[in-house]
Simulated scan of single mutants.
Amino acid sequence: MNIIVTGASGFVGQNLTQYFANKQYKMTALSLRNENWAESLEQNATALIHLAGKAHDVENTSNPNEYFHINRDLTIKLFEQFLQSNIRDFFYFSSVKAVVDTAQSIVDEYVEAKPLTPFGQSKLEAEQFLLSQTLPIGKRLFIIRPCMIHGAGNKGNLNLLYKVVEKGIPWPLASFHNQRSFLSIDNLNFLIGQMLLKDNLASGVYHFADDETLSTNELITLISKTLDKKPKLWFIPIGIIKSLVKVGDILPLPLNSERLKKLTESYVVSNKKIKQALGIEKLPVTAKLGLEKTILSFKARGTES
């Protein structure tokens, strides 16, 4: 099997490339930074997995136009090349943030799309274009909306929580009660691999998430136990916390309103559609096992440094 990957140097790209290399698949990295990328696009691959994109900037310092140029316009150009090629499958990695920024209920593929940020809006507009196109016979389009992906080498809010626990800092947001979906990179790799093997899988939008959810307090407890530490949870009144983070919106502090929302909101994503489509009951890695693996990778990296 021959697979082309954009964004191969990123976290997901590196892991997918290694996963498929272990299966003896031929992997080709396509850099969209190269002005002549269209000329180097292999025409007879099995699949084109489009990972390259501009990620959400929690500091809100990016030019909004950059999101649309990279996430929408480049995707459109790439898809047009795909339509003219002999490549069978096009995987577009979007995000659950393309439809919902704050989830009041379980997020599935049928939720009404109301993205609030340039990141989500640019992803949605790319999706809308792809879905509006007529696919030639024999071609398939898969729009993947993952929730928060984690694994060895991962950065972001999970790494921030790890550092809080590692340094023995009490978790001051324990008064916020939530449930969140996570996605282990191992489960992501597995799902993409199964989709490639299932010849009769229907084109469409598919949400990726682990089978179980965890609260942030449960995650803090899991990190603590993995590090052989006693969980330190501080139940400070929510009103006081919300007043304090307003300072972080002005000054460069570790906690601002955007990060507070990411750390404390509930965000549950359904993976029911993709599992039914693939005929699987459970993903190979549980949410806790996957998170433990990621946490241990942080610990190992800290020991080496």
Rank of each mutant, 00 (worst) to 15 (best):
Q104H: 10
K261P: 00
N189C: 15
L32V: 02
K225L: 13
G156H: 13
S243T: 06
P254R: 04
E125H: 10
S95K: 04
R301V: 00
K225R: 11
I137W: 14
A209Y: 04
L135E: 09
A8I: 06
L260S: 06
E265V: 05
I106D: 03
S122W: 05
G7T: 02
H50E: 06
P136C: 09
G204E: 08
Q128S: 07
I106V: 14
K262N: 13
K198T: 12
I149C: 10
A202S: 12
I137E: 15
K242Q: 14
F11P: 00
V107K: 05
Q81E: 14
L283T: 01
A113R: 08
L158T: 05
A52K: 05
F129Q: 03
V285D: 05
S62I: 09
I70M: 08
Y267W: 14
L78G: 01
L260M: 12
V269E: 05
L131T: 00
D211T: 01
N71F: 02
D249M: 13
N63L: 10
I137Y: 14
A29N: 09
G138A: 09
Y25T: 01
A202D: 13
L291G: 02
L197V: 01
K155M: 10
M148E: 04
E42D: 11
P252Y: 10
F235S: 00
P254I: 10
K77P: 00
V96L: 11
N187T: 00
E66N: 12
I274Q: 02
D101A: 07
A277M: 13
K26H: 15
H207V: 03
I241W: 10
K299Q: 14
Q43D: 10
I49S: 02
K261T: 05
L183E: 06
F119T: 01
Q194S: 12
L222S: 01
I280Q: 07
L233C: 09
S9P: 00
P115S: 01
Y92G: 00
T226H: 09
E258H: 08
G151R: 03
V245I: 14
I240Q: 11
D101H: 15
F235I: 01
K139T: 02
